[in-house]
Design a protein around this nucleic acid. Structure first.
Length: 575
RNA sequence: GCGCCCGUAGCUCAGCUGGAUAGAGCGUCGGCCUUCGAAGCCGAAUGUCGUAAGUUCGAAUCUUACCGGGCGUGCCA
C-alpha cells in the first residue's frame, strides 16, 4: 500500500497546489480505505474550513486538477465532500507485481536506529509462569517487527538473579545437597524456592544464616558465588528450553541481568549525588522528580539506596538506562513490562533524563500490557488456585491441538506430521491470543476460543496459508508474479489487502501494537479464503487466469507466512 | 484523597491522525460438499459505543465532570 498511497498522495498534492497555490503544498490528502470505493480522500473537508469555502467546492476543484489517468477508474464526490476513488485493475496488478518482487513484500525500510528491547525477565530459581508470558511474546514480536523494518535490535533479558532471596536459596542448597547443587534437578526449582521461602519464614536461625549469606554473596565470597552461579546456570538453561519451545529468539547472550549492573550501582549513586540530584530522606538516598506525589501529597521519591545501605531496583534500572544509551548506543529503549509498573518506570525515565543519561534523540517507552484473566475474570490461576506454569501451558496447548487433529483425522498427515503440526498450532494459538488484542487491556484466557478454527485465531490464519500452499504444490510448475492480473471482485479485494502489508508493519513498528498486525492478517486470511472459494485456480477457464491466480495465491501465501513470522508464529505447509 | 489504565452486540474483541448507515468472530436462525482443503464459504437477526455536558459542519474517537472495575501511591523487585 505504501507505494500506492505515496503515489496518490503525490498526485493529490500536485492538484491541491494547482488549485489553491503553493502555500497549501504538503496538505495531507487524508486517504483511507472506504466501504463505498477502494479509497476515499477527506482532505476537502478540512481544507474547506481552512479556506472558508464549502467543502464540496474544494473537492470539485481538486478533482478537476488531479491527474490519475491509468490509476483510477472512477472518481466521484459524495456527501459533504468526500472524494471516492476506484483504482484500475491494471494499477493494482502492477503494484502487486512490485510487492511480490520485493524481498520485504512491500515493507519500507526505516532509518536504522539502535533499539534495546527489555523483555521476558524471569527470576532465577523460579519457574517461568503465566506472568512472564506476555512480556516474552510481545517483546519477541516487537523485536522481529523492528528488525524487519531495518532497525538494529538488541534484546535484553533482565533476569532477576540478585538480591536478598539468594541468601536463603544458597543456604537451602547447602542444607539439602551438602553444597553439591549439581544434584539439583531443573524441574525441582520451583519447589526448591518454596521450601527455602518456608524455612526462611518459619526458622529464625535459617533466616539469620540467609542474611549472612547475602552479605557473603555481595562481598564476592568465592564459595558463595560458585553456588550462586550454579543456580543461575541451572535456571538459564531451563529458560532456554522454554524459549526454544516457544520459538522465542532470546539467547543466553541476550541475558543482561541484575547482577550485571551490580558493580555499577555505587557509581550511579555517586554520579547522582555529584549532580546534586540525590537527597537524604528518612535515611534513604532518593531522587525527587517533579510531578510525582505520595498519598499525603508529598513529593514521591525514587529510592536509589535503602536505609539499610542496599540498592533498590530503581538503582539497577537507572544503571540499565545509562548502559543502554551510553554503552549499547540505544536511541530507543522499550520496556515490555506490565502496566502496574507505569509509575515506577515514568520516575526512572524522568530521573535518567535529569541525570543526562536519557537525552534526545534517545527515548524510553514503557510498552505496558494488561493481565491474563481466568474464566472468573480474576487473575488466571490453576483450578487449585496456584500459579500457572508456562511449561504446563505449552504442554496443554500442544496436547489440545493434537486432540483436535486426531479428531479431524486428516488423511494427508502421518503421525509424526500430526505431532509436528500440533506443536505449531498449539504454540501458535497460545501466542496469537496474547498478541491479537490491544496489549494494554486485560484478556480472558480460553483454550476453546484460541484453538478454534473460526474467527480471529492462529489456526484460522494457518489454515488459510496451508490452503494456498496446497494449491501451489499441486500446481507443480513455476509461479511468476508477472502473470498477475486483476479481474473479479475477490481478486481485487485480495490485491488491496496484500498491498496493505507494508503500512501495517510500519504502523506496528511505530505504535508497538502487535494486534494491528493480527487484525490485518485476519482480514487478509478472510479475503484469501473468499478468493479461493470463488475463483478456481488450477481449474481456471484459461491459462492466463490460471497463471494470474496462481501468482496471487503465491503472494498471499508469502504475506501470510511473513506476517505470522513477524509475530513469532510458524505456518505449516499442511494441516 | 491523588495519579494511571479500562468500560463498544448475549459472550470475546476490532474500530488507524475526529468523517458517510459503528464492524468481526463465537453463539442463534437459514443456505452451500460428484467442483484446487467443508478445519471452509454465503446470507439473516443483534447496539442508550458506561452516563451527562462541551468543542465541531461532523464525536466511539478530542475536553470536562460523574458512575463502575482494575492497578499504583517511600525503602519487595
Amino acid at each position: 500500500m505504501s507505494a500506492l498511497i505515496d503515489t496518490l498522495t503525490l498526485r493529490f498534492d500536485q492538484a491541491i497546489v494547482a488549485a489553491f497555490g503553493d502555500e497549501h503544498a504538503g496538505t495531507p490528502p487524508v486517504l483511507r480505505r472506504s466501504n463505498r470505493a477502494d479509497f476515499q480522500a477527506d482532505v476537502a473537508l478540512g481544507l474547506g474550513r481552512k479556506l472558508g469555502r464549502p467543502p464540496r467546492e474544494i473537492a470539485e476543484a481538486i478533482v478537476a486538477k488531479v491527474d490519475l489517468a491509468g490509476l483510477v477508474d472512477k472518481i466521484e464526490i459524495a456527501g459533504p465532500g468526500f472524494v471516492n476513488l476506484s483504482l484500475t485493475g491494471e494499477w493494482l496488478a502492477r503494484e502487486v507485481r512490485a510487492a511480490a518482487a520485493d524481498a520485504r513484500l512491500g515493507v519500507a525500510s526505516e532509518t536504522p536506529e539502535t533499539v534495546v528491547i527489555d523483555y521476558s525477565s524471569p527470576n532465577v530459581a523460579k519457574e517461568m509462569h503465566v506472568g512472564h508470558i506476555r512480556s516474552t511474546l510481545i517483546g519477541d514480536a516487537l523485536a522481529r517487527v523492528l528488525e524487519h523494518v531495518g532497525h538494529r535490535v538488541i534484546r535484553q533479558n533482565h533476569l532477576g538473579d540478585w538480591g536478598t532471596p539468594f541468601g536463603m536459596l544458597i543456604e537451602h542448597v547447602l542444607d539439602t545437597s551438602g553444597g553439591d547443587a549439581s544434584s539439583l534437578s531443573i524441574r525441582d526449582l520451583d519447589v526448591f524456592y518454596r521450601e527455602a521461602r518456608a524455612k526462611f519464614d518459619g526458622d529464625p536461625a535459617f533466616a539469620e544464616r540467609s542474611r549472612r549469606r547475602v552479605v557473603l554473596l555481595q562481598s564476592g565470597d568465592a564459595k558463595t558465588l560458585e553456588l550462586w552461579r550454579l543456580l543461575v546456570d541451572l535456571s538459564t538453561s531451563y529458560f532456554g528450553e522454554i524459549y526454544a519451545r516457544l520459538g522465542v529468539g532470546l539467547k543466553s547472550g541476550d541475558v543482561c541481568s541484575e547482577s550485571f549492573y551490580n558493580p555499577m550501582l555505587s557509581k550511579v549513586t555517586s554520579d547522582l549525588r555529584d549532580a546534586g540530584l540525590l537527597e537524604d530522606s528518612d535515611g534513604a538516598e532518593c531522587v525527587f522528580a517533579e510531578g510525582f506525589t505520595s498519598k499525603e501529597g508529598k513529593p514521591l521519591p525514587l529510592i536509589v539506596r535503602k536505609t539499610d545501605g542496599g540498592f533498590g531496583y530503581a538503582a539497577t534500572d537507572l544503571a540499565g538506562v545509562r548502559h543502554r544509551t551510553a554503552t549499547l548506543g540505544a536511541t530507543r529503549i522499550l520496556y515490555v513490562v506490565g502496566a502496574p509498573q507505569q509509575q515506577h518506570l515514568a520516575m526512572v525515565f524522568a530521573v535518567a533524563a535529569k541525570a543526562g543519561w536519557l537525552l534526545p534523540p534517545a527515548r524510553a517507552t514503557h510498552v505496558a500490557f494488561g493481565s491474563i484473566l481466568g474464566p472468573d475474570k480474576k487473575m488466571f490461576k490453576t483450578r487449585e488456585g496456584g500459579t500457572v506454569k508456562l511449561a504446563d501451558l505449552l504442554d496443554e496447548a500442544t496436547t489440545r491441538a493434537l486432540a483436535i487433529i486426531v479428531e479431524k483425522d486428516p488423511p494427508h498427515l502421518d503421525d509424526a506430521a500430526r505431532r509436528e503440526v500440533a506443536r505449531m498450532i498449539g504454540i501458535g494459538a497460545l501466542k496469537y491470543v496474547d498478541l491479537s488484542s490491544d496489549r494494554v487491556k486485560d484478556y480472558v484466557f480460553d483454550w476453546n476460543r484460541m484453538l478454534a478454527f473460526d474467527g480471529n485465531t492462529a489456526p484460522y490464519l494457518q489454515f488459510a496459508h496451508a490452503r494456498t500452499r496446497s494449491i501451489l504444490r499441486k500446481a507443480g510448475g513455476a509461479v511468476d508474479a508477472a502473470d498477475v492480473a486483476i479481474g473479479t471482485p475477490e481478486e481485487r479485494a485480495l490485491a488491496l489487502a496484500l498491498l496493505g502489508f507494508g503500512d501495517t508493519v510500519s504502523g506496528v513498528a511505530e505504535s508497538l501494537q502487535p494486534h494491528r498486525l493480527c487484525t490485518y492478517l485476519f482480514d487478509l486470511a478472510t479475503v484469501t479464503t473468499a478468493f479461493l472459494e470463488n475463483c478456481p485456480v488450477l481449474k481456471a477457464d484459461d491459462a492466463a487466469t490460471r497463471a494470474s491466480r496462481l501468482a496471487l495465491c503465491d503472494v498471499a501465501s508469502k504475506v501470510l507466512a511473513r506476517g505470522l513470522g513477524l509475530l513469532g508464529i510458524e505456518a505449516p505447509e499442511a494441516m
